[in-house]
Design a protein around this nucleic acid. Structure first.
Length: 218
DNA sequence: TGCCAGGCCGGGT
DNA sequence: ACCCGGCATGGC
């Protein structure tokens, strides 16, 4: 496929997925802080496990920066057990919250009001926040147009030869950033639709099946 | 029963 | 600059 085809291809894929699944209404969280907690907890973990952890935190009234800041690591880990990797994720949550209090007066809006580039840079400087988690926060909590790339994105779009199979994060991201108009609403929906598709048709590292809206591949 | 899930880090080449 | 092991629960 030629490089100039990418914009049309990306639009075509989007249309097919939107037609099949409709609007996804992401992020599945009510507040920016909940989005951020979810973004960290869902690292290499199914969302259903994360939901339980978030439900716990809500029931214990711990889902605020201040309350979480006051918790010890072991205690916090106990509340997020179901999300897996709970020790390391407790640390990562604390790392984020510590930064919030050290540099932003514990005020999330103070952090999120930075411009997209500065926000992303600061998030990446926090231990435990990598490119996907950072972009998820920038897009779904701050609502800036940064495209989020995940394992499904790589699988689906490399299988359709829009990117190389061994493409790295930034390389995949640039496929979307360079060929779509930067729009947070569209990027929001597109990534959500990719995840929706991947969950059902990309399982077990197998090729897309024939029921997939993107058609048979391989 | 085993494999996988909306990654990331640290240590080693 | 990559490559790899470790991190851990719950669902199918």
């Amino acid at each position: 496929m030629k490089k100039g085809d990418a914009p049309e291809k990306l639009k075509e894929f989007y249309k097919a997925l939107f037609k099949a699944f409709g609007p996804q209404g992401w992020w599945p969280g009510e507040t920016p802080f909940e989005v951020i907690v979810g973004a960290i907890l869902t690292q290499n973990t199914s969302w259903s496990n994360v939901e339980k952890a978030i439900r716990n935190l809500k029931e214990e009234k711990l889902l605020t920066p201040r309350r979480m800041h006051a918790l010890g690591l072991k205690e916090l880990a106990g509340h997020i057990r179901s999300s897996g990797y709970f020790n390391i994720k407790a640390k990562r949550l604390k790392n984020f919250i510590d930064r919030l209090f050290d540099n932003h007066n514990g005020n999330l809006n103070n952090l999120l009001k930075k411009n997209a580039g500065e926000l992303r840079k600061e998030l990446l400087s926090i231990n435990g926040i990598g490119p996907e988690t950072a972009d998820s926060i920038v897009l779904y909590a701050a609502e800036y147009p940064e495209f989020v790339v995940d394992a499904y994105t790589k699988r689906i779009f490399s299988r359709h030869n829009l990117i190389r199979h061994d493409a790295g994060y930034e390389e995949v991201k640039s496929l979307f950033m360079d060929n779509l108009k930067p729009d947070a609403v569209t990027f929001n929906e597109y990534h959500a639709l990719i995840v929706r598709t991947g969950k059902h048709f990309c399982k077990n590292k197998k090729p897309l099946c024939e029921e997939c809206p993107l058609g048979v591949y391989f």
